[in-house]
Structure formats: C-alpha cells, structure tokens
C-alpha cells in the first residue's frame, strides 16, 4: 500500500538554507559565546575566573527560578503578568510571618510559596472558568496582590530583627558554591523532567500547540492550564522569598522588576535551539546571557544604564535573528 505516491526525489538542500537554519537555532548561543570570548580576552583576570563564573550563576539564580515558572504558562499557550507582584507579596508575607508571628524559617518559606500557589489558582480560575483573557486576568490579579501587599506591610519594608538564619539561605555556600545556584540547578532539572518526561508536561505542550486538537485528544486543557499558572505562581513566590533572604527584609515592590526580566529571558530562550518554542533550557540560557552581559558591563566600568540597552538588545537581536533565519531557511 505504500506505492500510491513515490517519495519525492531527495536532493541536497541549498547551502544557504542550511546556514540560515543553523543561524536560527544556534544564533542566540553564538551571541552568548561571542560575549564570553570577547570578555575573556578583554578582562582575563577578572572575567574568566572561577569566582566570577560562580558570581554570574548566583546572580542568575532568582531570575532563572521565576523565568522557569513563567515558561510553564507560556508553554500552555497562556502568560502571566502577575509574577512580579506575586514575588513582592510572597517576600512580604514570608518576612511578616517571622516578624509578627514568630514562626520558623521553613514555615515562612512555605507560606511565601503558598501565596504564589493561591495567586496561580486564582489566575487559572479567572482565565479558564470565567474565560477572561490572560492579559486582563493576570493584570487584575497582580493588582489585587499589590493591594494585599500594602494592606499587610503598609507600604514600608518588613525587616527581620535577627536575620542571620534567613540570610544564610542566600549567603551560605556548599563546596564554595552559594545555595541559590543549587536551587536553580535542581529546579531546572526538575522542570525539564516535568515538561519533557511526564504526561502532564507533554499535555501542556500539546495544549499550547493547538488547544482544540488537544481537547479532542482527551487532554483536559483547562486543568493543564491551571496547573501551569500554579507552577508559575509557586516559583514566583519562591523567588520573592529568596529575594528577601538576600537582605533579611522585604520591600513592597522588590520583586516587580522580575516581570520583564523573566519575559525577556523566556522569549530569548524560545530562539535557542528550537524554532520559537518555549523550553526550560532556553529560558535558563536566556537568563545567563543577560547575567553575563550585566557582569561584563560592571567589569568594564560602564554606567548601569547600559544594562537596559543590553537587555533590550539581547531580546530583540536574539528573537529577531532566530525569526529572520527561520524565514530565510524556509525559502
């Protein structure tokens, strides 16, 4: 039965198409590699040292955690604008739990994550059950979170009186590497396994690819999306708590800046190794690329405003080159 149509004759792909294909998949990685090479040449004593590598990874850790969470919602075909507010609120709640109720650090951490989970559930409910567009829904829920935040903290930072144990989470090291790096690596591995090697993760990808086809294939698309929001919220909550452990205090809007950083990393990552699909490894590489850039700007003694130029350019060039290259390769 296989003789109905003859396999089209296969010929060598044009060389240019192959090159564009390579550029599309590896262009973003080449950008990172070029950055590392140039910096290693310029500042061999300060940039290319073991200490600085650990430093860069440590600075990536929090952005990576929140961006990986965001990747889950993006994979299911939704997105979440409340993550920054969630992180802020989670930090404030974790510190408040210790300061006002005198509870232990593990309870504080869990309460921060719980805040994220609740916000994720609320996001999921509004998006799937009420059917509100994710843009509006998560913006609304995020604003609610800001309100709760101010109601609890009154707009002033919540600081621990005896922060040593709390600070240890950010400052402590094992084998010379700070704990947050382990947290980032562990979560990255876990997130990768969940997305690629579990029924849930594959279902998320299918739901994001074509929700109707997924639904008719028996995948419970709404449920999968809610789970995506919950994972995203939980990791945003964890990020907020970890941020508070850096200083032993939680400012009311401390986590807000992570919103754009996480989106930038995830979108940059969608152009890494894949053709515009969100994935964990890409997101982590996106975060690290930005961290390397910031590190380079600091080591070169450039003004901090260059960080914004760099982050903006990384996003535009990384995603832009991938998009253009794929289009060229298809010709």
């Amino acid at each position: 039965m296989t003789a109905t149509t003859i396999q089209p004759a296969l010929v060598q792909q044009p060389r240019s198409a192959q090159l564009w294909l390579l550029l599309g998949r590896y262009g973003a990685l080449m950008m990172l590699a070029a950055l590392v090479l140039v910096m290693s040449a310029l500042k061999p004593d300060t940039f290319a040292t073991g200490n600085n590598v650990v430093n860069i990874l440590n600075q990536s850790a929090l952005s990576a955690v929140i961006a990986m969470g965001l990747t889950f919602t993006l994979v299911t075909g939704e997105f979440d604008l409340s993550i920054g507010n969630t992180a802020s609120l989670a930090g404030v709640v974790a510190c408040t739990v210790i300061v006002r109720h005198d509870l232990s650090i593990p309870v504080a951490i869990l309460s921060g994550i719980l805040v994220g989970i609740l916000i994720g559930l609320l996001n999921g409910f509004v998006v799937t059950v009420l059917g509100v567009n994710a843009l509006v829904a998560t913006l609304g829920v995020g604003t609610l979170a800001v309100g709760v935040n101010y109601a609890i903290a009154g707009g002033t930072p919540v600081s621990l009186s005896d922060p040593d144990g709390f600070l240890e989470i950010s400052l402590g090291r094992f084998l010379g590497i700070p704990y947050p790096v382990y947290i980032m690596a562990g979560l990255a591995l876990l997130a990768w396994v969940v997305l690629n090697r579990t029924v849930l993760g594959r279902s998320m990808q299918a739901a994001g690819g074509n929700a109707t086809a997924a639904e008719l294939s028996g995948i419970r698309v709404d449920r999968v999306r809610v789970v995506g929001f919950v994972i995203c919220g939980a990791l945003a909550g964890l990020t907020g708590v970890l941020l508070a452990t850096r200083t032993g205090s939680a400012a009311v809007s401390a986590g807000d800046t992570y919103l754009l950083a996480a989106f930038a990393a995830a979108f940059f990552g969608s152009a890494v190794l894949r053709d515009g699909q969100f994935h964990i490894i890409g997101t982590v590489i996106g975060v690290i690329t930005v961290a390397v850039g910031f590190n380079a700007i600091a080591l070169l003694g450039m003004e901090t405003y260059w960080q914004y130029f760099f982050q903006g350019l990384v996003l535009i060039i990384g995603v832009g080159v991938g998009t253009v290259a794929r289009r060229r390769a298809a010709k």
Binding site: T198, V199, R202, S203, A206, G209, N210, A213, A214, D275
Partner: peptide
C-alpha cells in the same frame, strides 16, 4: 486534529496523553 508545528510522533502520542489518568505519570 493536529499540532501542525509538532513532529509526526508527537502528534501520534497526543491521544495517549489525553487518555492517561495521572499527569505525574512518566512519559
């Protein structure tokens, strides 16, 4: 019927994912 950007095998696997009882099950 299809996730057009996904591979043939990913598409072939979709209904089996849908029939799975537990999301935590390993793929």
């Amino acid at each position: 019927g299809l996730v057009l950007s996904d591979s043939i095998e990913d598409n072939l696997q979709m209904a089996e994912l849908g029939a799975a009882r537990r999301g935590a099950a390993l793929f």
